[in-house]
């Protein structure tokens, strides 16, 4: 405590003291907000709701058709700076797990086409970016008591990430956490590794 006090004092006074944390390592010590049973369904341990959504090219993905693979699922929008910061790291995750039975999907939440295309246009992404035009799919994933103060319920899961195991069960489910923002998806990768290890 006393040591901390001294550092805080020197920092406060503009003294030449090195910062107390390394800014380059921005991985938070704890995971983003974890979706728990108390927030309602679905939550970790439950089956992921099925969906069948199209992408911009007219292709479509049915979640249940991916049984047997590990699915990394990200809910995104073009307007959220956290979604934007995470975007290149989703592609990097897809690259790093290529050939390892991991499928990456992003779902753009209820945006007009201009917003959806803005998201698509930012970073080249070699995985399906699906378009939930009506918001029905995100609604089926939104726990009723998560962020109860947010009135537009379709925005509760912006920058949420899920890992779904080969039998369709949710193994990782976090919501956008501004104070513990895991832009590099380190915590999701840990779960993916653990689920892959089970299969191996």
């Amino acid at each position: 405590m006393r040591r901390f006090a001294l550092i805080a004092l020197l920092v406060a006074c503009g003294g030449a003291v090195a910062p107390v944390a390394t800014p380059a390592d921005d991985t938070p010590k704890e995971a983003s907000i974890v979706v728990t049973e108390a927030m309602g369904s679905p939550h970790i341990g439950e089956a992921a709701p099925d969906f069948d959504l199209s992408d911009v090219n007219g292709g479509h993905v049915k979640l249940s058709s991916l049984r047997g693979s590990v699915v990394m699922l990200a809910f995104v929008t073009s307007w959220c700076p956290f979604s934007e910061a995470e975007q290149p790291n989703l592609q990097k995750l897809a690259d790093d797990y290529r050939g390892k039975n991991v499928r990456v999907l992003a779902i753009d939440i209820k945006e007009p086409e201009v917003g959806y295309r803005k998201y698509l246009g930012r970073v080249p992404m070699a995985f399906p970016v699906l378009w939930d035009q009506t918001g029905d799919v995100v609604a089926s994933f939104t726990p009723a008591h998560a962020q109860p103060d947010i009135t537009d319920r379709s925005t509760v899961l912006v920058t949420s990430n899920l890992v779904i195991d080969p039998v369709g069960k949710i193994r990782f489910f976090t919501m956008g956490d501004t104070a513990h923002f895991d832009a590099k998806l380190v915590f999701a990768r840990r779960t993916i590794d653990a689920v892959l290890a089970e299969g191996g």
């Binding site: 405590m1 001294l6 805080a8 920092v11 406060a12």
Partner: peptide, 25 residues
């Protein structure tokens, strides 16, 4: 500052978890 620094850091106080930290600049 010595007195202030011995107090609980702002970000550990209720409702103030988002307080900027000195290392953020």
């Amino acid at each position: 500052a010595p007195r202030a620094a011995l107090e609980t850091p702002t970000w550990e106080r209720p409702g103030l978890g988002g307080a900027v930290r000195p290392e953020m600049g």
